[in-house]
Design a protein around this nucleic acid. Structure first.
Length: 293
DNA sequence: ACGATTATGCGACTTACATCA
DNA sequence: TGTGATGTAAGTCGCATAATC
């Protein structure tokens, strides 16, 4: 895996003047949300605008989501959910671990749950009517989880029809399926952001190293310039073909007199072809694949 | 055609609960 | 056994969009 591969994360980086800089989304949510929907378009031209953003492209996030989360889903896929009584269970008495390890135990808990919910699925309306009841933590069982994961792999968003079908299949309320998908998307995005941050760190470290190397090279060239100056004066005309120095501006120039790429700081301009192997310059803002890391 | 209103879905953030070390 | 950390289902808020009037 090359550096380009590492940096090809689909991440935008730049300094953006319009976005609020603090972390209090609630206070600036209006602006934030308006900006959010336009982010895709902005990222398209991020090499032209002075902005600083960090976020994965959605396509990228979705592509990398499924494999990364395989370990969460486990290996229980297929139609098991529909073949067993897959009622969601509140894990109030037995441990989640046991619940996840033995589907048979789930059935016991389901029976327990069935008693509580009058042996019927709780509709959204019924659920909302349960005022004053303490908030219970639903734990999806293995089969439900696997089915939801499978569905998520196929499509990270649900149509109302799909939501309803999935809810019926899993004996869950449509709202629960909806929430699960929302949270799942959020987890995927978070995970991808973490990955992107790591890659960004690597990019930064590499650039720092490159910078150090170039600084060192610059120092060497400066010392070379000082050492070469008396020699230059003694040499006959035309003897210095590959490395010349302009007496007026004190720049080291190539023999061809082209001037090379200006560094901008006015310190020196060199042709690296005369000084050894051409170094690999990495510019994340001009490099196509790196521009997004 | 247009603006206002409403319903719906989503992301971001937060809370509450269950579990584990 | 108490406790902090962690994972996650669910609640809340605000925005975008489409449909309707």
């Amino acid at each position: 895996m090359g550096f380009d591969d590492i940096c090809n994360t689909g991440l935008g980086l730049g300094i953006y003047r319009q976005l609020p800089q603090n972390g209090h989304i609630h206070h600036d949510q209006h602006q934030h949300q308006q900006q959010k929907m336009k982010k895709k378009q902005i990222l398209k031209y991020d090499h032209l605008l002075p902005f600083l953003t960090l976020g994965p492209s959605e396509d990228h996030a979705m592509k990398s989501a499924t494999k990364a989360d395989d370990h969460i889903a486990g290996k229980v896929y297929g139609d098991q959910a529909s073949s067993i009584s897959a009622l969601s269970s509140f894990s109030n008495s037995s441990s989640i671990k046991k619940e996840r390890e033995a589907i048979g135990d789930e059935e016991d808990q389901e029976l327990e749950y069935l008693e509580r919910v009058s042996n019927s699925r709780v509709s959204d309306e019924d659920y909302e009517d349960q005022e004053g009841s303490p908030r219970k933590k639903l734990r999806l069982n293995k089969a439900q989880f696997a089915t939801l994961e499978d569905s998520f792999k196929e499509h990270s968003t649900l149509t109302p029809k799909q939501k309803q079908a999935l809810a019926e299949r899993l004996n869950l309320r449509p709202r629960q399926v909806e929430v699960w998908f929302q949270n799942r998307r959020a987890r995927t995005k978070l995970k991808q952001t973490e990955v992107d941050c790591e890659l960004l760190k690597k990019c930064c470290e590499t650039l720092t190293e490159e910078n150090k190397r170039l600084q060192k090279e610059l120092q060497e060239l400066k010392s070379l310039k000082v050492a070469a100056a008396p020699l230059y004066m003694e040499m006959p005309a035309g003897a210095v073909t590959s490395l010349t120095m302009c007496p007026s501006c004190e720049r080291i120039c190539g023999g061809g007199g082209g001037g090379g790429g200006g560094s901008g700081d006015g310190s020196s301009t060199v042709h690296f072809s005369t000084l050894g192997p051409k170094p690999h310059f990495f510019n994340p803002f001009t490099h196509p694949s790196a521009a997004s890391c």
